[in-house]
Design a protein around this nucleic acid. Structure first.
Lengths: 144, 144
DNA sequence: TTATATAAATATAATCATTACAAATATGGA
DNA sequence: TCCATATTTGTAATGATTATATTTATATAA
């Protein structure tokens, strides 16, 4: 919750990314909003305090962060990319009803049965979808 | 390799899908081309024997097949959906160099560590990416 | 400090996969 | 055959993302 500008700048510098105002604010947003936001969510929120902010900058910055392995791009949503500041391998569940994304812990050790030694694996994505507990209850209550 | 029109019609009828000419041809294509084709691949190939075929029909049909659980839509490619006739749970690896998708066997039993009992899970997608063995060799040979 | 080269941000336009829509065509049952 | 309905088709619209050119900010050297 409490990330100083100094801390965030350091995180960027360690990845050889110059800590501009926009980059600091975008990274700060990601650190404080771990609900896997979309570009629009980030843009709309930050646009209030940085009126000159361009959506292109948000795209460029997130792309830069992705290359530096500061964020992961999730393709779990059918029509928008989601961004996750948590780089550790974990699974994602998206609710087809409300769109919320839930993290869950995974154990990749025994997942793959085939031998993939010859493959250079860079990213592992685990996506589940269905209906979340909250929406299951809502459906029962509204009877549809 | 050898699916008769009768067999394919039956597959559709069993899912309450009327076996139109276009639907039969699209399903036949999927059964005989298991390289996880894109809409464009399917359209371009079938357009030759069905000159009036519309790309909208390909989209509509694949969407219908997906709802009937005849195919799965893969979101592993950054800018195009891929379609997989194999409904069994298995993993997919996409090569960032050549775009080829490889299947691999998985064992989902011990994957999830968290308790997801409250969630209604409909689909499980396992996506890896990186460089495939063939492209690793090519890179070494071309030295870049 | 000032000039200058470079990096970053911005606004706008272009791209392109997918979807919406309305019209045309095909099909199965009375 | 006729008709209601399902399917297909062509075209246009949508909307996320990317390309491009211009403007602005920043770091460094003189």
């Amino acid at each position: 919750m409490n990330y100083s500008i100094k801390d965030i700048s350091k995180m960027l510098s360690e990845k050889d990314i110059r800590p501009s105002h926009q980059r600091i604010k975008i990274l700060e947003y990601l650190l404080e909003n771990k609900q896997h936001p979309t570009v629009d969510m980030i843009y709309n929120e930050l646009h209030e305090e940085i009126p000159t902010l361009s959506k292109t900058t948000v795209y460029n910055t997130l792309s830069l962060f992705n290359e530096a392995k500061l964020v992961r791009i999730l393709s779990i949503d059918d029509n928008e990319a989601r961004y996750d500041i948590d780089i550790e391998n974990h699974g994602h569940f998206i609710c087809k009803k409300c769109g919320d994304i839930h993290d869950f812990e995974i154990n990749l050790d025994s997942l793959v049965k085939d031998n993939l030694d010859e493959f250079e694996i860079n990213e592992k994505h685990i996506y589940f979808n269905g209906i979340c507990p909250k929406c299951k209850t809502d459906i029962r209550q509204s009877n549809n």
